[in-house]
Design a protein around this nucleic acid. Structure first.
Length: 439
RNA sequence: GUGGAUAUAGCCCAGUUGGUUAGAGCGCCAGGUUGUGGCCCUGGAGGCCGUGGGUUCGAGUCCCACUAUUCACCCCA
C-alpha cells in the first residue's frame, strides 16, 4: 500500500471523455467547423484568460458572480465566460486591421463558476459565429445566420429540428405601448412561459407589478401562432402604435421573406413570440433551436442581434448578429438520450501492422508507405502471443490488420484481415493502400 | 445563493429483524504452449463498506455530525 497515492478525480462540472466518446465529440466539432467555413466565416482564437477589467467592463451582476477570477502577482485576471466579450475586445483592438462586415467563427472552451447540474458545465465548448458590421449591418445577415444553423444541424445528422426566432423590438415595443416599466424582467418571464405554463406566467407577471389586464394582453400577443408571414400579418393588424414595435415587425418581416431564398424548409423554421432570451444585450432578432423529438433538451443553439457589440472598448458603433452552440452540453444530452453513440472506434488507426520475428524493419517501412498515402497506421511493437496482438486491434476497433512475416516479405503478398468479418484477402502492398484509402 | 436526495470493488449493484472470513455481474490482468481477436473455460488482483463520533456484547446495517457527490430553483450554452 502506498500512502502517497492521491485519489484521481476531476472537479465536478468538468467533462472528460473516454476515447470512443472523444472521437465522436471531435467528429461533431469538425462537422461544425467545416460548415462554418463553408459560409466563409473566419477562424479566430483568443486567450482563455483576459484582464478582469476587460471581461467585466459590462458586468451585469449575474455574470460577475459566475466568473472565475484570480490574481497572479499584481494582475487581476479572469477566465472568459463566453466568446462574445472576447470578440468585442478583439474587434475593437484590431479594428483597423479587420475587414467589415467581419464574419468570424470561434470554437473554444469557456468557464462559468456556477453550481453544476444535469447538462450544466463549468467548463464547456462554445461554437460561435458572429457577423459584425461597422456602423450598420443588413438584416439579411439575420436570415443568413438561420441558414448557417440549419446547415450545421443538418450536417450533424439531424432531420427534425426547429429554429425559432423572434424580435426583441416587437416585445419591447409592445411592452412600452402597454406602459410596462421593468421590461427586462417581463422578457425573462415570457421566455419561461413554455416551461412554466400560461397560468404561472400570468401570476409571475402580476407579481412583477403588472395589472391582470396588461398581463393578459402580453400573453395574448405571445400566443399568436402560424407561419412566419401569417404572424407578421396578425401583428400588423393589431395597430400597435409604437415605433420600436413597427421597426421590429419590419425586421421580422424581412427575415421571413429571405429565409426561403436561403433554402430553409418551412418545417425547420418558426416564428415564436415567446422567445425572448435572457441576455440583455440582444436588441433585435433572437434565435433558439430545439430538437423536435427531444424537447426536454431545450435550446441547443441560441443567439441574436445586438446593436452595439463593443461599446465598452471603442466609440465605433459595431452592430452584429450571431449564435452559439453549446457543444459540451449538446454532446452530453445527445449521449444521455442515446441519440448518438460511439461507432466502435476508439482510435483513428485504420491499419495495424503486426510484425513476426525479424520483420520489424520491413513493417516500419510498410507503415511509412501507408501513412504517406494518408492511412492512419500503427505497428504493434510489443512481443507476445498473436492472440493478444489481435485483441489489441479488436479492442480499439482498428478495422484492418496485416501480419507480416518471412513469407510475406519473400512474396510481397500480404493477407489483409478485416477485423469485422474475419475474412482475409491476399493483396500486394499497393492494393492494400488503394483499398484502405477508400475506407 | 435556496431546497431535496444519495454514499459498499474501476463500473452497475446485492447484502435478511444488527451476528463470524463482505458477494455476484461487467471490466481489468494471467493462463487454456507454435502466425489469428470476438465466444467459452480456469485462475488472479482489486473494498478500513465516504470520514468522524454515538447506541450495542457485536454496526456495511440503527442515530448524529461532517465531507463528497447528485438533482431541482435562479441563470444560462
Amino acid at each position: 500500500m502506498n500512502g502517497n497515492i492521491v485519489a484521481p478525480s476531476i472537479l465536478p462540472g468538468f467533462m472528460e471523455l473516454l476515447p470512443a466518446d472523444q472521437m465522436l465529440f471531435n467528429k461533431m466539432l469538425d462537422t461544425i467547423r467545416f460548415t462554418y467555413e463553408k459560409y466563409g466565416f473566419i477562424p479566430i482564437d483568443t486567450p482563455m484568460i483576459e484582464k478582469s477589467e476587460i471581461l467585466l467592463a459590462k458586468s451585469g451582476g449575474e455574470t460577475e458572480k459566475q466568473v472565475y477570477r484570480f490574481s497572479k502577482g499584481d494582475n487581476d485576471l479572469s477566465l472568459r465566460f463566453d466568446l462574445t466579450v472576447p470578440l468585442a475586445r478583439y474587434v475593437a483592438q484590431h479594428y483597423n486591421e479587420l475587414t467589415f462586415p467581419f464574419r468570424r467563427y470561434h470554437i473554444g472552451k469557456v468557464f462559468r463558476g456556477e453550481r453544476p447540474q444535469k447538462g450544466r458545465f463549468r467548463e464547456f465548448y462554445q461554437c460561435d459565429i458572429d457577423i459584425v458590421g461597422s456602423e450598420s449591418l443588413s438584416v439579411i445577415n439575420d436570415a443568413e445566420i438561420l441558414s448557417v444553423i440549419y446547415s450545421t444541424f443538418k450536417a450533424l445528422g439531424f432531420q427534425s429540428f426547429t429554429i425559432r426566432i423572434n424580435n426583441r423590438k416587437i416585445l419591447n415595443g409592445f411592452f412600452s405601448w402597454l406602459g410596462v416599466e421593468n421590461k427586462t424582467e417581463v422578457l425573462r418571464t415570457i421566455d419561461k412561459m413554455e416551461k412554466i405554463g400560461e397560468q404561472n406566467t400570468a401570476r409571475e407577471l402580476e407579481a412583477l407589478g403588472l395589472s391582470a389586464g396588461v398581463a393578459q394582453e402580453i400573453i395574448r400577443l405571445t400566443k399568436i401562432k402560424g407561419k412566419g408571414d401569417e404572424i407578421v400579418e396578425s401583428l400588423k393588424g393589431m395597430k400597435v402604435e409604437n415605433e420600436e414595435f413597427s421597426t421590429g415587425l419590419e425586421e421580422l418581416s424581412q427575415v421571413c421573406s429571405y429565409i426561403g431564398y436561403f433554402g430553409i424548409p418551412e418545417d425547420n423554421f418558426s416564428v415564436d413570440l415567446t422567445i425572448a432570451r435572457g441576455l440583455d444585450y440582444y436588441t433585435g432578432t433572437v434565435y433558439e433551436t430545439v430538437l423536435n423529438d427531444y424537447p426536454s433538451i431545450g435550446s441547443v443553439c441560441s443567439g441574436g442581434r445586438y446593436d452595439n457589440l463593443a461599446q465598452n472598448y471603442t466609440n465605433k458603433k459595431l452592430p452584429g448578429v450571431g449564435i452559439s452552440i453549446g457543444l459540451t452540453r449538446l454532446f452530453y444530452q445527445l449521449r444521455e438520450a442515446k441519440i448518438v453513440e460511439p461507432y466502435g472506434r476508439s482510435t483513428p488507426t485504420k491499419l495495424l501492422v503486426i510484425p513476426m520475428p525479424d520483420a520489424m524493419n520491413y513493417c516500419l517501412d510498410i507503415s511509412t508507405r501507408a501513412r504517406e498515402n494518408g492511412i492512419p497506421t500503427e505497428v504493434y511493437f510489443n512481443e507476445g502471443r498473436m492472440g493478444k496482438k489481435l485483441a489489441y486491434a479488436d479492442k480499439l476497433g482498428i478495422p484492418f490488420v496485416v501480419v507480416v512475416g518471412e513469407d510475406e516479405i519473400k512474396t510481397g503478398l500480404f493477407k489483409l484481415k478485416n477485423m469485422k468479418t474475419g475474412e482475409q484477402e491476399t493483396l500486394s502492398l499497393e492494393e492494400i493502400i488503394e483499398k484502405l484509402k477508400l475506407v
